[in-house]
Computed example of a mutant assay.
Amino acid sequence: MTQALIPNPFVRWHFRDFQKRGYSIEQICQQFSVPETVFTSEGKDVSADGFAEMIKQSVVAIDDESFGGISTSLPVGSFRMMTYACITCQTLKQAIHRTCNFYRLLSKQINWRLDIGEQQSKLVFDTNLAGTTGASHNYFIIFTSCIIWRWLSWMIDKPIELSQLTLNFSPAYASSYLPGLFKTQVHFEREESAIYFDNSLLDMPVKQTPDSLQTFLINAPQCLMSHYQSSMSLTKKVQEYLEDAQYIGETNLPHAAEHFFCSEQSLIRGLKQEGTRFKDIREKVRKQKASYYLVKTKLTNQQISAQLGFSEVSVFYRNFKKWFGVTPSQYRENPQRASQHDSKAQ
């Protein structure tokens, strides 16, 4: 799957308030791993996952999930608390009402609401009572409406198709990106900022559970700016994490859970939902690394055993024979023979 790319103007929009806070472009690039070309080019130089990581780091840096969009900041963890408050809802309608109520409690400047018409409903992201305007406020409207829309899609495990997006400000920074982001027509200079969708969705049941929420929160809310379902499975992410580890033997479940900012049980449950276990992924990566070291490097069997985290070389020998049907020395001499054995075993 081709990785989605975020337009540079939209990334710049995200960091506009940081420049007002005194951050130089050089500081932004260094602290948040932003390519310098983001500020010099109109192209696309940031992947969706890369942008998600920038969002996560920048939220922590200023402790404000509104990015300065409203004068009363939303502290880090606000979205997470909201998800826990809503996960027990029975229907989409109930989840929307509870989401709106939660954010109204957090800030008097937020007055979100659900208006239900004859055929269409609209979720209004009203902050006009705050009297706040400007690029940061407009970005907050775009960011939160996208996040909440995709969060609700995840809740019912179904993409919510929007009939339109209305915004109560003029076309400005990165406006051309919005139809693609929301996959619908966008209208500016309207009375309210709102997303519109069919009433039939309101009675859709919430399919997620507290268990699935734990896995979801590993990458949310930042990942929701590009998708409501991860473009890479948790299994694949864990596999890549282990592949990048210099000493896989020192990388265990607690280390992995810490890396993904979740509990060990959350990681176990997430992998179980995808039909695998941490130790199975680790075993697969160990096997791949063993093959690589023997064919591509001049490391001794003892060195390879240590790299892979085996307590003794003899334990490495036994595992290798189980994997490939030959000893490490035989494999190094004729890896093709071992590959044939491996194919038959599978």
Rank of each mutant, 00 (worst) to 15 (best):
G249L: 06
K56A: 10
P205E: 10
L178P: 08
L92M: 08
K279S: 01
A61R: 07
R190A: 11
A257N: 05
E191G: 05
L123D: 02
R269P: 06
D157W: 13
T2N: 11
R337S: 07
L267G: 05
S163F: 01
S121D: 08
E26S: 10
D115A: 13
T184E: 06
E240R: 10
M1C: 00
I141K: 15
V326T: 01
T91I: 08
A338K: 03
D342P: 02
R12I: 07
T99F: 13
E53P: 02
S121A: 15
Q246N: 07
F140K: 03
F79Y: 14
Y317D: 12
M54T: 07
S305M: 12
H259Q: 14
S153F: 03
T72H: 02
S329N: 04
G270I: 06
R277G: 01
L253E: 07
L217K: 14
I148A: 04
D115Q: 08
T166Y: 01
M225V: 08
Y331F: 14
G270F: 09
T127K: 08
L217T: 15
L165P: 03
P179L: 13
I55W: 06
E312Y: 05
L106F: 14
H137I: 01
I141Q: 13
A130T: 06
A245E: 00
V60G: 01
I248A: 00
P254D: 05
F125Q: 01
I195M: 09
S212E: 05
T297D: 01
Q208A: 03
E243I: 05
R286M: 14
I148D: 00
E250M: 01
H227Q: 08
G180W: 09
D198F: 08
L308F: 11
L165Y: 09
Q246S: 04
F188H: 10
I156H: 12
F182Q: 06
F324H: 03
Q214K: 15
Q109L: 06
V315R: 11
L213C: 13
Q90K: 14
I160G: 00
W149D: 00
H97N: 15
K93F: 11
T327D: 01
V34D: 14
P179Q: 15
A220F: 03
F15C: 09
Q30D: 03
S200P: 03
L213M: 15
Q330R: 10
R277P: 02
I87P: 08
L5P: 00
A290T: 04
T215K: 15
C100E: 00
G134E: 09
I25G: 04
K287Q: 14
A95D: 13
F320D: 12
T37D: 10
R80E: 12
Y292M: 04
Q330F: 01
D211Q: 14
I148Q: 04
K344V: 11
G131T: 09
K279A: 08
L271K: 04
S153P: 02
K279W: 03
Y293T: 04
I70Q: 11
F143N: 09
F143P: 00
Y23F: 15
S107D: 10
N252S: 11
S226L: 07
K236G: 02
C223H: 03
P210E: 07
K322G: 01
F79V: 02
D342K: 05
Q57I: 00
S58L: 09
K183G: 02
N334D: 12
